[in-house]
């Protein structure tokens, strides 16, 4: 069996497993899994930029939040229908990524990290400043009645799971395909050796910008989906912590692998979920995991698997 056949089977297998899990899991865990899938979309968006293109952003919360507020505000204040508001959220995130990219991509390395961190911090403060509309830290709830799509109730456990799974599947398969295209291969080349890529005649700058826009838009999908499915929009999602999370997930699962983000979110979610029943200092776990990962397994779970067992892993 060729690598590409194996990888197609793997991706379809993961989706099939998620379908089966819905029927066998108790409701509490099925609910968790909807949340995990939405957060995994965010992680996948981040992974395209960090794992494949080699750009470490510390400000992705601004794209997640742009999707969330773009959706939530047009729906709540603008009275837009759900599909249109959803598109608005994604477009907001993509457009923000374009603007940030034009500025931040003039820098590289540590400066890029700090610049993205600062822009995200600005974004967070802007959300607080326009508290009249955003309700600041407190946030606002999207009423159950508004979270309907063509008569289909998105607040029921089933509605949530199905929507999360569909969105996840689209992003999962779409990104898995994207990284195999010449465009995706070029992103990997930039990660490995940007100067060489440029001297092979590729426009590295425009590739990075496009990667950032896609990454931002996918993060926006996750933000809008989160607001839609869980009915809450708040400034917490724009804080530094939500910029650190995707980095953590991707590092844990394996940067530059297609299934890494899902694995990372899954383990981290249950790690925090379990530990928060014992202590309110659950972010301690995140800190310990980050340190252990950087020191001992910089390639993450899927990365270590790829290195040791399955060389074909995409």
């Amino acid at each position: 069996m060729t690598s590409s056949r194996k990888s197609t089977l793997l991706h379809l297998g993961v989706l099939a497993l998620l379908v089966v899990l819905f029927f066998v899991l108790p409701p509490y865990h099925a609910g968790n899994l909807s949340r995990i899938m939405v957060l995994a979309i965010y992680a996948m968006g981040y992974n395209l930029l960090f794992g494949y293109t080699g750009l470490l952003s510390l400000g992705h919360a601004m794209f997640f939040a742009a999707g969330m507020y773009g959706f939530g505000l047009t729906l709540n204040l603008g009275g837009w229908p759900v599909p249109l508001a959803f598109v608005a959220g994604v477009v907001c995130a993509g457009a923000l990524a374009l603007v940030i990219g034009l500025l931040a991509l003039r820098t590289a390395g540590v400066a890029f990290m700090i610049v993205t961190l600062m822009f995200a911090q600005t974004g967070y403060l802007v959300v607080l400043y326009f508290g009249t509309y955003t309700r600041g830290d407190e946030g606002f709830v999207i009423q159950q009645a508004q979270r309907m799509l063509g008569g289909f109730d998105l607040t029921s456990e089933t509605g949530r799971y199905v929507t999360a799974l569909i969105l996840f599947a689209i992003c999962f398969l779409g990104l898995a395909r994207l990284v195999q295209t010449p465009f995706g291969r070029t992103l990997v080349a930039i990660r490995e050796n940007e100067e060489r890529t440029r001297m092979l005649g590729y426009d590295a700058g425009s590739h990075k910008l496009r990667a950032l826009i896609i990454s931002g838009a996918v993060s926006g999908v996750a933000g809008a989906a989160y607001a839609l499915l869980f009915g809450y929009v708040g400034a917490t999602f724009a804080t530094v912590q939500y910029s650190i999370f995707p980095l953590l997930w991707v590092l844990l699962g394996g940067a530059g692998t297609t299934i890494g983000p899902l694995i990372g979110v899954f383990f981290m979610f249950y790690l925090i979920d379990t530990s928060s029943t014992y202590t309110n200092a659950y972010m301690l776990i995140a800190g310990v995991v980050l340190v252990l990962l950087t020191v001992f397994a910089p390639q993450g779970l899927a990365g270590e698997l790829r290195k040791r067992v399955f060389k074909w892993l995409p």
């Binding site: 510390l58 309110n280 301690l284 800190g287 310990v288 950087t294």
Partner: peptide, 19 residues
């Protein structure tokens, strides 16, 4: 990796203090 590592240290110190 240093940035990621110091982010880890950040949470370890902060959360240990919280506890």
């Amino acid at each position: 990796r240093t940035i990621v590592g110091t982010i880890g240290i950040l949470y370890i110190i902060q959360q240990t203090t919280l506890m």
